[in-house]
Amino acid sequence: MIIFECTPFKNVITKSIEIFENWTNHKCKLENCLYKIKNISPLNLAELKILNPLKEELNTSPLQPEIDFEKTKIDECKCGKGIIYSAKDLANILKNKIINQIKFSEMPIFITNDFIAEFDKNDRRWHLRYAFFYFPTIISIQGIINAPAKPREYYIYIAKGIPTELIPENLKSKFLTETDKRLPRVLAGIMLQAYAFYILKYPFCDNKNCSLFNAHWQEDLLNSQKDEPYILCDKHNFLLKKN
């Protein structure tokens, strides 16, 4: 597996790789940020910006400050400021940049702090994602923290204008933050999903206790991404140390 890292989260990613390698005996090769090493065009990134959560159209005519922002973002590692990008279009740009140098069997994963989303043709709106399973797979740190919904009480507090800092501690424990000690384990579980995608062509499992569970709530994510009662269910356990 080739991991293109997100530099500000290097420590978290290193811990996640340790956990993942220990589970699978599969060695990971760590590389620099894919945006940087492949000279991704700031204009192309600005064009992938989602403007309205209810409209499929992207930012077809970026303004110069938007392009400048993308350049600064890459140069200064300022991903995750709040701009959301079309996951599919981003993955396609990255695919075209690596397809001649990296094989599918090398399982490339780009870990970024940028937000990514997919447009659902059924409910006609964009949905934040923690990962987009493709070649390469994109895992979004901000997506892990923000895509699976937090408990309903959290949004009631926010709607009342109560700042995040003043939310009760017992509620805060029910969702992840950027500095959360549980983040490396959760990220390792999502790396397992990418691993399953590359081997089985499908990353998910319906079992709520399996690390391959596609969680839409933070509480479900935290429940599935722990070692008890098991890391992977009976059906997927073969992925651990046997492949």
Binding site: L51, N52, P53, N59, S61, L63, Q64, P65, E66, D68, F69, K78, K81, G82, I83, I158, P163, T164
Partner: peptide, 26 residues
């Protein structure tokens, strides 16, 4: 002369950084 995008839904945690970041000559 210019195309603007219109503001999105409320997102307190992320909007402040972006407003400062994007303050510019348009």
């Amino acid at each position: 002369i210019i195309k603007i995008k219109g503001f999105g839904a409320m997102w307190v945690e992320k909007s402040e950084d972006m407003v400062v970041e994007y303050t510019s000559e348009v």
